[in-house]
């Protein structure tokens, strides 16, 4: 189980800091996939990388908060202990499958190198082959010696997933693992991740900008806007009855099968605010249809009917009206 508490992360520029993640808190229970959703630039990747402590000077700085994995705060571990934890307990699946593999390193070797060298070679090989096969790489045995450029994007992503899963991690962090793939491949990768989560009882932190993808895969969603959590709760509930105006807009932007071609491309008007040092008031206010004077004070996350939401005007609306309102 992963618990993130009041995580605050800044990027460092020459002489100033920009806060990319502010006081983000959420849990990823064991055996559950939690979707981290939000527009591009909302800080999702930063959260994911911070959990693995990959943000450090001179690039950025984790200013505060706790990241507990099964009770142990990763942010206070020694570098050595952190490396062991990363090695044993955390698997990472990046966005671009072709960049995820070293072009000069054979497919089999990618997976092999994550395994302990104490396991005999033949055994490792059998393990790798069965893992790759279970992830949908056909004839894995004959393809261990191939180089990544001989594989399609989807196949590379399966290999990347295999390297993430080979050590049997507790937590898998996937950063937009299907964004670079075509729809069919995307679907089969999502199915596969879901099957692995069930089989292995993984905690999965799944980053995506696409609420429709989160809806298919995740039991919980955490909606981020401009570095802050604006709404979090069970996926079904959040999507069926979004309480935050931003979430409502996101839900409205999910293309529907009934859409006319023109209606398919809906964007939320306006731009998210730039990451700055200080902020007062609701960050969504400039784009919010419900903004009012109260919104110049920062809204706190509050529970409203099973979902936590940070908005002065949060209210539960039925799906139909919510969608209708944003069109």
């Amino acid at each position: 189980m992963l618990q993130i508490e009041n995580l605050r992360v800044a990027y460092l520029h020459d002489n100033r800091r920009s806060i990319a993640v502010r006081d983000v808190s959420f849990d990823v229970p064991t055996g559950v996939t939690v979707g981290l959703v939000g527009e591009s630039g909302s800080g999702k990747t930063t959260v994911a990388l911070s959990v693995m402590r990959l943000i450090k000077p001179p690039i950025g700085d984790i200013e505060g908060g706790k990241v507990r994995l099964d009770g142990v705060d990763l942010l206070t571990l020694s570098n050595k202990a952190m490396r062991t934890t990363l090695h044993n307990d955390i698997g990472y699946i990046p966005q671009d499958p072709t960049a995820a593999l070293d072009p000069l390193c054979k497919i089999g070797r990618h997976v092999d190198e994550t395994l302990s060298s104490k396991i005999p070679k033949a055994e490792r090989r059998a393990l790798i082959i069965s893992l790759l096969e279970s992830l949908g790489v056909r004839n894995a045995a004959t393809r261990l010696g191939s180089y990544p450029h001989e594989f399609s994007g989807g196949m590379c992503q399966r290999v990347a997933i295999a390297t993430a899963l080979a050590r049997g991690p507790k937590l898998v962090i996937a950063d937009e693992p299907t964004t670079a793939l075509d729809v069919t491949t995307q679907l089969s990768i999502l199915r596969l991740l879901d099957a692995q989560r069930r089989e292995r009882g993984l905690s999965m932190l799944f980053v995506t900008h696409d609420l429709a993808v989160a809806q298919m895969l995740c039991q919980y969603v955490v909606v981020m806007y401009a570095g802050e959590v604006v709404e979090k709760g069970p996926t079904e509930e959040v999507i069926r009855r979004p309480r935050h105006p931003y979430t409502r807009a996101l839900v409205g932007a999910i293309p529907q099968p009934t859409d006319t071609p023109r209606a398919r491309l809906r964007a939320i008007p306006g731009q998210p605010p730039a990451p700055v040092q200080d902020r007062s008031g609701c960050p969504f206010a400039p784009r919010c249809p419900l903004a009012e004077s109260a919104c110049s004070a920062m809204p706190e996350l509050k529970e409203l009917d099973g979902v936590e939401v940070a908005c002065w005007n949060a209210r539960v609306e039925e799906e139909e009206s919510a969608v209708a309102q944003t069109r």
Partner: peptide
């Protein structure tokens, strides 16, 4: 990075991921 505009029209059904022989 793709923006919201590029959301792909997937049918939002929870069971889509599971038990599909055509997977």
């Amino acid at each position: 990075e793709q923006g919201w505009e590029q959301g792909v029209a997937l049918q939002p059904q929870a069971d889509l991921l599971l038990d599909s022989p055509t997977a």
